[in-house]
Design a protein around this nucleic acid. Sequence first.
DNA 1: CTAATATATAAGCAATCACTTATATAAAGG
DNA 2: CCTTTATATAAGTGATTGCTTATATATTAG
Lengths: 127, 127
Amino acid sequence: MNDITGTPICGETHIDKKHEEEVRAHLPSEDEAADAAAIFTHLSDTTRVKLLSMLAVSDMCVCEMADLLGMSQPAVSHHLRILRQCDVIRFRKWGQKTVYYLSDNEIGDTVKRLLHTVADGKGQNNG
Amino acid sequence: MNDITGTPICGETHIDKKHEEEVRAHLPSEDEAADAAAIFTHLSDTTRVKLLSMLAVSDMCVCEMADLLGMSQPAVSHHLRILRQCDVIRFRKWGQKTVYYLSDNEIGDTVKRLLHTVADGKGQNNG
DNA sequence: CTAATATATAAGCAATCACTTATATAAAGG
DNA sequence: CCTTTATATAAGTGATTGCTTATATATTAG
């Protein structure tokens, strides 16, 4: 039921203007929804979840991530670029190597929290 | 640098077995990473972010969501099915209408937290 | 310079996805 | 029964995605 009135928002008259406005007021804009969806898109891949989980433990260079995941170097670089472009991770050069690390900004912090959230909140408690 | 030793995990010998084991121990399994990625996949769409934001305010029937979003009914049903299949939302029948609502389980709670997290944590504080 | 190593990028392909149109199901009214 | 309304599903399509192979860039060593 409705959080405000306890009745379905869609009554006999099909639509209650007051409820419609309440929902509309909380509806994210196209850009806000796209931004939120983009963050989820960047995290919505098994390989990228693993990469971020690894980088949450320790900085690492590309060849090592490829070794640990048993994946090709270009495949890992492909995902690292995606995570780089949205500033979830950054890198520094160290000799011939490129060492990646989680950004210590709010996006990086958000990612850590999201990973913990989904790791903790998979179960169900009713239904 | 490395969280444990302060040095890059990938040294002159290319790989430090101790660090490798530390990372490997924290590496999610294929299934765990897939589960986390799946949750993000279900949220990684502009329309679904909007739908969930709307349902976080009030339960609603399909036609109303379609009206509010200016989208076709099948398109909305398509996204609702995806959210239904992973138990983020549920529904009850009310006459001819199907009223959807956020699941009051940990997945639903997780989604609410995730939406808040990304809404709050978009900015950067350094770099 | 050449060679080796580490990484990035490009091109291409199979798979997936979001949406469309068309149709099926189901409830309510006549 | 038939019609209307509300929703679900199916088939098809253009766009995107993840990975591959091949190549380019960059650093280090000789």
